[in-house]
Amino acid sequence: MAKYILKRIGYMLITLFIIATFSFILMKMLPGSPLTAEEKVTEAQREIILEKYGLNDPIPVQYVRYLGNLAQGDLGVSFQMKNQSVTDILMSRAPVSAELGFWALIVGTSLGMLLGLIAAIRQNSWMDYGSNIISVIGISIPSFIFAGLMQFYIGVELELLPIAFWGTPQQAIMPVIALAIFPMAISARFLRTEMIEVLGSDYIVTAKAKGVSKFAIIFKHGLRNALIPLITVMGPMAVSLMTGTLVIEKIFSIPGIGEQFVNSVTTNDFSIIMGTTLFFAFLFIVIILIIDILYGIIDPRIRLAGGKD
């Protein structure tokens, strides 16, 4: 197990190193410099500024310093917002995004599990078909379309809920639902498949034969075993939540990382774009690592199969 975890961490570091190097090269390749717009800057002033930010050093020196800064969590300074470090901006906005993502995950997976469970127990009934249709729609239609439609019909036409901003529980309802739809759909579908397989297995037959109640069979014997593989869909869920926050926060004007990112794209604030991208990459890789390790602990067969490759 220790060997497996070490191997995975090794890969994680290589991946992070490649992403960091790649983004450094990109930063150097981008047209213009942070000073391009400042036409009034004299040659001497320019020299001073370049010296201050170490932009006069040879590229390898800059590269090593960049990696050193990254290792300490320093993502540089925003081009557009005065005297704000990218790390500070991200950290001040991260809690909002985390809150949004957390609730979407909770709402999505619990509703999804409910749907999947009902579909599995009442296989081939109208409830099963209904649940299948909901999950196909949820997987297919992008969250921003849901968000837009909800904003228009529920927010503007019916005036039931506030259409933007963050803070009150009412304001959270629509963005959380929009973001929760994909996790809901994917966990419903996955749980249904797993549950049907588990309910058909021998130990369930044994449990039935010795007279265990239907409730206990479904929840104690069935659901508990069907839930384990659900960890595998956590990866796609994490990705969907990250891409989701970018657009959902923009649509509902929620002051999180995603909204900052989209605004930075419009203002060409490359340091924030890069910083956010690296932050997302880091987060994503760590989440996948945790999922894989968890899965390796819960189901040792996965680890062995992975080792043989």
Partner: peptide, 10 residues
């Protein structure tokens, strides 16, 4: 290991 989203944006 590199998230698709990150590559696409970069």
């Amino acid at each position: 290991g590199i998230p698709n989203l990150v590559v696409v944006i970069l």
